[in-house]
Design a protein around this nucleic acid. Structure first.
Lengths: 259, 259
DNA sequence: GCAAGTAAGTGTTACAGTGACACTAACAGG
DNA sequence: CCTGTTAGTGTCACTGTAACACTTACTTGC
């Protein structure tokens, strides 16, 4: 409210650099090696929809801190890759999944978010069609698994697929997850991200189910169908798919004009 | 499209850690100190509106690389602060401005974005009322200055206030700036950020001018006034302000319900 | 072969927000 | 009191959205 702090520098700085001049001048003389540097990781919130419900991929931690707690997949960024590269690499390594929709979410940098050391995390969110999921062969199912998302009293909760109470996440991963859920819900209204959660061909009912799972609320069938068709996001194929009922038209996603 | 890459690790890794087990297990055994770590900076795109035109704050570089080029204000994150703290601190130090609207924009991490070393930057954008700007006393005006933003052929361009051709920015700061402009334009439609660019009391014409400056296009007077009043974002005060013309009602921003 | 079950598919109406459009009101200065 | 200048005000057409129920096409079991 009052006058701003002008110089507060609680970092280890080589004394010979602490001379006069503006901050801008100071920065130019700066030797990056003189400062402590953080570790920088990526964390990925990978969503899918199975049986009409939204799910996230989590990985069980084997060591302290947060031993045996569930955490988002992720890892360190390497020096020759971008954060997005790192996120894609980690997804390939930990879940055997590549070529998927992935966008940067937010960068979490609260000091103390990792109790051991200074770690900044660039979070991403990603979407996969449940058909494309094959958890890595040789991975014990007790180490990597999908969890249900439910809207609880205090925001979104994570539950085991089998049932049971809410699961606690390691670090600030609950916050990251909440941010990601908020983001995809907000985005679904005006960007066609729902298609990322479906195979190439799908029925309009399947598409609607996916939207309902993401938003956590039911949608009107006629309005939904009218909208996606009016927006030209979808194109009928020649095939149909049936069961013990009227067969459904199969559609493809069509990218008529991207932003 | 085909099978994803499973293990590519071009980083310096202590050989004794490269044993079997999943990536998840590997991470647990990980010693953060063994890896090279990046420097992490913040860069801030500080906007204001003066005389109906959008401006950004830039700082002239004194050293190589990009000696004498203009760059966004910014600096290193310290170990005891969050990225947002760092951004606010840098704004206070470099522009003498505090208590302003500031939001995270995007994290830029392309390897090679800094030609010297590995630097990841968490970018922020910020808005100030032009009345609150007092460039730091003692700062040479040739080192820190406001620049006009214009919509050119290939995206947004930076121009000196006096005139002249487009100015080139250091590093990937042109990309950061373009991202920031896109973001505030998109956000203006559904979040009342325009008020951040005005003093506490303002006329509706002033508010409209600010919106027009941000969007880079004219708006209809009646529609604009109807909208802000219908949304209840604004409350009339008792004062008016006049010149050689009909006096204008002064309004205050009212935060009726935030998200 | 027909009845029951099941999911697919289809239109209309009311309401809200948006964009286009032109004139009158209130003041200062000469 | 005339001129210049900015403030202020309403309507209509269009578009998108939300609410609402019945018919169609197939499979299965009798």
């Amino acid at each position: 409210m009052a006058s701003p702090p002008r110089k507060s520098r609680p970092e280890p700085v080589p004394p010979e650099l602490e001379t006069g001049g503006t901050q801008a001048e100071f920065l130019q003389r700066y030797d990056a090696d003189a400062y402590v540097r953080p570790s920088v990781t990526v964390d990925i919130v990978l969503f899918t929809v199975v049986e009409g419900a939204l799910r996230v991929l989590l990985i069980r931690r084997k060591k302290h801190p947060f031993k045996d707690a569930w955490a988002l997949p992720g890892g360190f960024i390497h020096a020759d890759e971008s954060a997005e590269d790192a996120a894609r690499r980690e997804l390939a390594e930990e879940a055997g999944i590549s070529d998927i929709f992935l966008e940067q979410l937010y960068t979490f940098s609260n000091p103390g978010r990792d109790p051991r050391t200074w770690v900044i995390s660039v979070a991403y969110y990603a979407l996969v069609a449940s058909e494309r999921l094959h958890l890595r062969a040789g991975t014990d199912a007790s180490d990597v698994d999908w969890f249900l998302l439910k809207d609880g009293r205090s925001g979104v909760e994570v539950h085991r697929v089998g049932g049971g109470g809410p699961v606690e996440l390691a670090f600030d991963h609950a916050e990251i997850l909440a941010t990601a859920v908020k983001r995809i819900r907000g985005k679904l209204d005006y960007v066609p991200i729902g298609f990322q959660l479906l195979p190439e061909r799908f029925t309009l009912s399947e598409l609607q189910t996916v939207h309902e799972a993401v938003l956590g609320k039911p949608l009107d069938k006629r309005n939904f169908r009218a909208k996606v068709q009016r927006d030209g996001l979808v194109k009928a194929t020649k095939e149909k798919r049936g069961g013990a009922h009227r067969p459904a038209q199969l559609f493809r996603y069509v990218d008529n004009k991207r932003e």
